Simulated assay, not measured.
Amino acid sequence: MAEAGKQVTVLERRTRLGGRTRAMRVESVDDVPDNGRHVIASGYMHLFRYLDSIGTRQFVAFPRGGTLRWPDGRKADVRTTGIRAVRTLLGVHPDMSPIDRLRSARATLRLGWQCLRRPEDLADLTTEQWFQRVGMPAAAREALWDWMALSIAAEPVQRGSVVAAQVVKMPKATFSQVLGTHGLRQPQRTSVPTLVPAGDWTATDWSATMESAVQSAARAVDLLLELPSEP
């Protein structure tokens, strides 16, 4: 809005800025860490546009890989770039059979297709039901997909909607959205044309993530810019 030369009044319920992110003082650390959403996905287009606008995009770096460890001492390397990333998607569980790897590849393709062509009933499914629908093998879920879904959506796959999220360790860190509540999220358009809500709790394409918050703001701005200019 400011870039378009508009004057904006922002209403914030809290007495501070930052939304659900808050700074904490830790005496043992020579810094003031921020506590909030901790996962940034590479598909967060609105968030990256915002980071570009404030000049902080360069501080976001994605790890090229990591190591999965099991309680019995087994471990597997995972990679996020190059040809080895394909192997990660096909399944890195030590007990996966060749057939399970083929099933994992097919299920991964189905996941990708349904992300691009979202089924109408997707919001009525738990993440676990979604994985079951596409035929994701249990070993692939244990090694990759279950914890990936948990880290991004902050919701156990057995409980939450595919498009839901919940954080329980920090009250009000985000809202709890389980099956049947997706339709209750407030859209940006209201009966008052100049009043548009924004926040990760509003109706967006994402669960309660940073991308949801920024996407809601982008939609709110688009609605306000559609209004006729006052003389």
Rank of each mutant, 00 (worst) to 15 (best):
A2L: 13
A4Y: 01
G5L: 09
K6L: 04
V10F: 07
L11F: 15
E12C: 10
L17K: 02
G19K: 14
R22V: 12
M24L: 14
R25G: 08
V26K: 15
S28A: 15
V29E: 12
P33D: 07
P33W: 13
G36W: 08
R37C: 05
H38E: 10
H46C: 00
Y50H: 10
L51P: 04
D52W: 09
S53A: 14
I54F: 13
Q58Y: 12
F59N: 05
G65M: 05
W70M: 12
P71M: 15
P71C: 14
D72E: 12
G73H: 11
R74E: 02
D77P: 00
T81A: 06
L89P: 00
L90Q: 15
L90G: 12
G91S: 07
V92E: 00
S97Q: 02
S97G: 05
D100H: 01
R101Y: 13
R103T: 05
R103Y: 13
R106P: 03
A107C: 00
A107Q: 00
L109I: 01
L109T: 01
R110S: 15
G112Q: 05
W113A: 05
L116E: 05
R117H: 07
R118W: 08
E128F: 02
Q129G: 09
F131I: 04
V134H: 05
A139C: 00
A140P: 03
A143P: 05
D146F: 04
S151D: 08
A154G: 10
E155G: 07
V157M: 00
R159G: 07
R159T: 08
G160C: 08
V162L: 08
A164I: 01
Q166N: 11
V167W: 09
M170N: 15
F175P: 00
Q177D: 00
V178G: 12
L179K: 13
L179A: 11
H182L: 10
L184T: 10
R185K: 07
Q186I: 13
R189V: 14
S191I: 05
P197K: 15
A198K: 03
G199Y: 06
D200T: 00
T204M: 05
T204P: 05
D205P: 01
S207D: 12
S212V: 02
Q215C: 05
A217I: 04
A218K: 01
R219I: 11
D222W: 00
D222M: 04
L223F: 00
L225Y: 00
L225S: 03
